[in-house]
Design a protein around this nucleic acid. Structure first.
Lengths: 181, 181
DNA sequence: GTTGGCATGTAACCGGTTACATGATTTT
DNA sequence: AAAATCATGTAACCGGTTACATGCCAAC
């Protein structure tokens, strides 16, 4: 279901696109909230077209098909956004690892937490860099009178806050283990 | 793979248990980091026994089989804990919803964010209650000279911090939308 | 003419969910 | 005697990953 919604969202926000375009948008703009490869996207677009949520607007060279969101698709997206109550899934490998950290000897536990800290720190830097480029683009757009693209803004902020939280957690946990030994 | 690790972790931390016991431990102690139902657990235990990671210690009434972790199982768990570098998976339905919030009209966006805030708040309360009962049990254990069960402590802390972060994010995002309109 | 990017698809497999199915023991 | 809980399993299905497979077009 969520793959459908993500595809509808991309089409709604950025206009008509091909499967190929959408695959790249997953890599660039949507990567930190949802992932999907072309092998999943092409069949899903076909199914969505059969269900009337998107339509093939044009067929270009190299068999390129440009999909557009239909009114039915917009309705589906809107309904999902408004009615779906947010589920926290929580099946996280890192959290599982964190859970079992107390099984390790203190020095090993610290090493694991140190690696987690570094990973979250890297992620934080990456997301902050992404926000930098986005705000720069937004300022430019505003200066030129275009209205800036806010799509993804809040999710990016959430990602940054989560990464920052994870860094602090790892540091504090390391300190906690040191204190106890 | 992770299901195996979770099962090995539970057996290592709490001693021999049956598939039924482990299913309940998933519901109670592990639920907020990893989920698994009995239909997944029973076949996995059988495979793990075939691979020598666990062994059937005893067969009780009603066909109950008690599994124990073997030295091979302990080695596998230890290796995973120490070598696995933490992957942030990021395929989150809530994050996807957050991503697309800017597609909505301000009042709808606020309503969605308000629901998210309430959800995270509820989750926060639940995790904090869980921590309360855990620290109470730990104090009791310490008073009686037993060493308290630290298994899951850091993951619970991480979960609480994440929930708190999500609440703040939702509040700030609502304020941001109000400011812009 | 060869490399690289564009562009689309299929198939095998794996992990996880839901539903089906059975029966023993304990509690009321 | 009936209901609840203990206890184990299988099967169909679904979403996602990896690998396989094909071919066009542009640039060097």
């Amino acid at each position: 279901m969520s793959l459908r919604i993500a595809l509808l969202g991309l089409l709604a926000a950025s206009g008509p696109a091909s499967g190929y375009d959408l695959t790249k948008k997953f890599e660039t703009s949507l990567a930190y909230v949802w992932q999907a490869g072309h092998s999943q996207i092409y069949p899903e677009l076909a199914k969505m077209a059969a269900d009337g949520l998107v339509s093939v607007e044009a067929e270009g060279t190299r068999g390129r098909k440009t999909y557009t969101i239909t009114p039915e698709g917009e309705a589906e997206l809107h309904q999902w956004m408004v009615e779906r109550d947010p589920v926290v899934p929580l099946r996280s490998e890192s959290a599982l690892q964190a859970f079992m950290v107390p099984l390790l000897e203190p020095d090993e536990a610290i090493a694991v937490l140190e690696r987690m800290r570094a990973g979250s720190q890297a992620r934080l830097a990456q997301l902050e860099a992404l926000r930098e480029t986005k705000t720069a683009a937004a300022r430019l757009a505003e200066a030129e009178g275009r209205h800036p693209d806010a799509f993804g803004r809040y999710a990016l902020d959430l990602g940054i806050r989560h990464a920052r939280t994870a860094v602090e957690w790892a540091s504090d946990s390391i300190a906690d283990i040191r204190r106890r030994t």
